[in-house]
Amino acid sequence: MLSKSQAKVFFLGGTIVTFAIFLGLSWNSLSNEVPKRTHEENLTPQVIAGKHIWEKNNCMGCHTILGEGAYYAPELTKVYERRGEAYIKAALMSKTPWAPRGRQMVAYALSEQEANDVVAFLKWIGNVDLNGFPPKPDLKK
């Protein structure tokens, strides 16, 4: 039967090997895949400013983006394609809570400039290659 010291070797050995593979794969993803798939050349100062606003207001506390966040409000990775610029800006600049279907969004009352930054960020993220996420609804008539 397995002894305690063999069990210890299993633990330490397994950890070191899998962790080394993990670091290698991560390094490959970050240096070779991310720049292309996310179109890093399009990360303009405006997109970055938009990301700042996105984070400062914890938009992820209600919405998901890249499928991560909260489940209270719609997934926004493809919102630029779905709704277009004017709609998004209206929601962001509204001085009263935006509530198209009853659920209220915080009234951020962003300036025109800030709203443009967020739109730029959402437009950028809409073009990231996500291996097919979100799926196309295949039962839609």
């Binding site: 305690k4 950890t15 962790f19 490959n28 895949e33 798939r37 291996n131 097919g132």
Partner: peptide
């Protein structure tokens, strides 16, 4: 002894298991 086996299983599966969050965020198919 069994504690070592369990935490061994944890790391062997869990470290590379991180990949289940990398399916659809903009990294590769591997």
């Amino acid at each position: 002894k069994w504690l070592y086996v369990i935490v061994g299983l944890t790391f062997i599966s869990g470290i590379l298991g991180t990949g289940h969050h990398y399916y659809y965020i903009g990294v590769g198919k591997a």
